[in-house]
Design a protein around this nucleic acid. Structure first.
Length: 225
DNA sequence: TGCCAGGCCGGGT
DNA sequence: ACCCGGCATGGC
């Protein structure tokens, strides 16, 4: 009983086209927005990324040097701004202390070791770490998120209560180890996840994976949290 | 208007 | 090992 990962991918790619992710302008912006987007809609993050650009916050050092109370004010519209400000500061301190403040240097670190170190930082969990590694560092680690779980549970390809690592392994064991593939695949899943039927609302406008739905409709529950 | 959003942590059982 | 509340703003 294996999941047709490449067929799913091709269906999504045919339907939506390439996504050109992560929607940010530099590895620095990827890293910052990966923290800011935790349990938050992208529109809030977009607004704050615009504020940071206007304020000239374009590097690790710029933000590292900023007083935390000032950081709170700049990122306020994102929501959870106090906790996220602290988490961002934790990450910036790690990059300063362990990599001389250089993202390029940081991404020279072997993937497994860098991932473990990121996960030790308070406020950096598996999704945030993997997003940074893949989308800022171009390193081959698959990113799993709430959409991925909802979509895969809905189609009966994953247990609704399976954990992050189980779902991640499903992709990494079944696909070529290729950062470009992981990048596009996850981006397409998020794109699909935003469709109404994957948010437990009325009907989806377009269901490119419809042919894969089990007989008798989606597996319940679709929720997945 | 209430409900939801591309998580993660800490405290209680 | 689980389960749960807290964190906060903006959009529909």
């Amino acid at each position: 009983m294996s999941v047709p990962l490449m067929e799913i991918y091709e269906r999504l790619l045919d339907h939506f086209g390439r996504q050109y992710w992560w929607p940010a302008e530099s590895p620095f912006e990827v890293l910052v927005s990966a923290v800011l987007v935790q349990n938050t809609s992208w529109s809030n993050v977009e607004k704050v990324m615009g504020i940071l650009r206007e304020e000239g916050m374009r590097t690790v050092e710029d933000l590292d040097d900023l007083a935390i109370e000032e950081l709170f004010e700049l990122i306020r519209p994102v929501g959870y701004y106090r906790i996220k400000g602290k988490r961002l500061k934790n990450l910036l301190a790690y990059i300063r202390d362990r990599h001389g403040g250089s993202l390029e240097a940081m991404f020279q670190t072997p993937l497994d070791r860098l991932r473990r170190e990121l996960l030790e930082i308070n406020g950096i969990g598996p999704e945030t770490a993997d997003s940074i590694l893949l989308y800022a560092g171009n390193l081959p680690t698959f990113v799993v998120d709430a959409y991925t779980l909802r979509i895969f549970a809905r189609h009966g390809w994953a247990e609704p209560d399976c954990d992050y690592h189980q779902l991640k392994s499903l992709f990494e064991d079944g696909l070529e180890r290729d950062a470009a593939l992981y990048n596009e695949y996850h981006a397409l899943l998020v794109r699909l996840g935003k469709e109404r039927c994957y948010k437990r609302k009325p009907q989806c406008q377009a269901c490119p994976l419809e042919q894969f739905l089990p007989e008798g409709g989606p597996v319940e529950p679709v929720d997945g949290a």
